[in-house]
């Protein structure tokens, strides 16, 4: 019964992203959007937190929000799948529930 978690806040400003990563159950995935995407850049102080979960959980980023912030797929930690708005909808539909971390 996996959950899709969504995060839209930078981990450098708020605890939502970090808290989300600490509450993942087996099979859960994380979709990062809006300001949350700045937390996906490699070699940040937050990258280790992502590494700790990326082996067990799928990480997705909303492409338009990466673009808007000048982030390229190569800038991100490994294991992030970029999706568009249609992909966002598909992810919501594929999971049993969605939990937003505001």
């Amino acid at each position: 019964m996996p959950t899709l978690h969504t995060v839209n806040k930078s981990p450098f400003e708020r605890t939502a992203f970090g808290s989300c990563l600490k509450h993942l159950a087996a099979g859960d995935a994380v979709l990062v959007l809006e300001d949350g995407v700045v937390g996906l850049r490699k070699a940040t102080a937050f990258a280790g937190d992502l590494d700790a979960v990326s082996g067990d959980h799928k990480l997705y980023a909303l492409g338009p929000d990466l673009d808007a912030r000048g982030l390229k797929p190569d800038d991100l930690v490994s294991g992030v799948t970029v999706v568009d708005y249609g992909g966002f909808v598909d992810l919501v539909a594929e999971h049993d529930r969605t939990q937003a971390w505001l």
Partner: peptide
């Protein structure tokens, strides 16, 4: 515990965040 909280979250039909 945090682990128990994660299990509570995973056990729901609907999760509403505030």
């Amino acid at each position: 515990s945090r682990t128990e909280m994660a299990a509570v979250m995973a056990d729901q039909d609907v999760v509403l965040s505030f």
